[in-house]
Design a protein around this nucleic acid. Structure first.
Lengths: 188, 188
DNA sequence: TGACGTTTTTGATCTGGATCAATGCCAGGG
DNA sequence: CCCTGGCATTGATCCAGATCAAAAACGTCA
């Protein structure tokens, strides 16, 4: 059982030890190699993840064939392809590992059973959704108000780990620019 | 008491009549004239709205002084400046009426009391958050993958009311383009 | 170790939509 | 009823970032 995960959970809701036990039992360990696909386009996302160590990201592919990275999970963070997971509908988002990654996976069935049975889990999920919404709101605001360079500088200031650990290609797609533009931004 | 509102609520969760009664009592009627500000930048959003008839929108203003419309509520829809409302923090989003509007307002205190006391309200709120998230996800995808013209055509196809009822200036800001570009798009 | 496929970098060119500018238009307040 | 300030249209120009092209650097696996 992961005390790290418990620690994170407690950050969102006031779980007691019995609840934490039950939740921890539902999360199944999994190890994936770099570049493993955890969810392909068109498949239904059936798992929610806690990343112990490593890096997952969600992205989608445009008609023109370009990757667009949407969300990155580094060590000790949680997430999934939320839109597909929530609705249990085929996903346009893809989920893959950017590094060799150790993670804990919670099935959709267990997730929603917990949501039915534990009031604290409802609270947890509500917080997650609120955060996810606010995060996206921020993304939209940034995309609309900042230039490519300003977006790069913002990540450099707030999230330098991303710059260290993602390839330039993926980082560029996260910033919604081309690798060429990113390369030019970096060289000044 | 609004049966329309009850109808909408039932769409999200299985409220019984007693619950609907209690909820309806919390929503206070309000009438606002076109161009009324319901929330200014920097203020904390303290109300959640049901629009009976009319039109509200949220938007923010960039450093360059441009309006960016983010969400529009026409007749029989619900919403608020969610980021500020959830966190009870000062808002960068502004809320105003685009037409003379009849609405019902639910205070933050009542909203969260209902959320504490009624399981069905929790369910309702969870669905709202899930929808809001998915909606934003779609916005981001559209903004990144579609040209200005394609975005216009998509609204024309899926949401023609917006084109009929919003001024071109506001519609342009909703599409993330300038009024000049919108004018040119329409004239072909 | 070497060879191939993927990144990264650098340079030249292109373009969608923004910006700037000018004119006509309409609606609402005095 | 008329005036005024915002809205809409049209034209000319500009620019951030994309695209295209072609080396150079990098990893990784036989």
């Amino acid at each position: 059982m992961s005390t790290q995960l418990s620690f994170l959970l407690k950050h969102f809701a006031d779980f007691d030890d019995r609840e934490l036990d039950e939740i921890n039992r539902c999360f199944k360990p999994k190890t994936v190699k770099k570049n493993t696909l955890l969810l392909s386009e068109g498949d239904v996302c059936r798992e929610f993840y806690y990343v112990q160590k490593g890096c997952l990201r969600t992205y989608f592919i445009t008609k023109q064939g370009h990757e667009k990275t949407r969300y990155v999970m580094l060590d000790c963070s949680i997430g999934t392809a939320l839109t597909s997971f929530m609705a249990q509908k085929p996903s346009f988002e893809i989920l893959d590992a950017q590094e060799d990654t150790e993670l804990l996976a919670l099935s959709y069935a267990d997730f929603y059973r917990l949501n039915r049975e534990l009031l604290h889990w409802k609270e947890f999920y509500q917080k997650i959704l609120e955060m996810a919404y606010s995060f996206q709101n921020k993304i939209i605001e940034n995309r609309v108000t900042l230039t490519a360079k300003q977006r790069y500088e913002q990540v450099l200031a707030n999230n330098p780990m991303l710059i260290q650990r993602l390839s330039n290609k993926v980082l560029a797609s996260y910033l919604d620019i081309t690798p060429e533009t990113l390369s030019r931004l970096k060289s000044k």
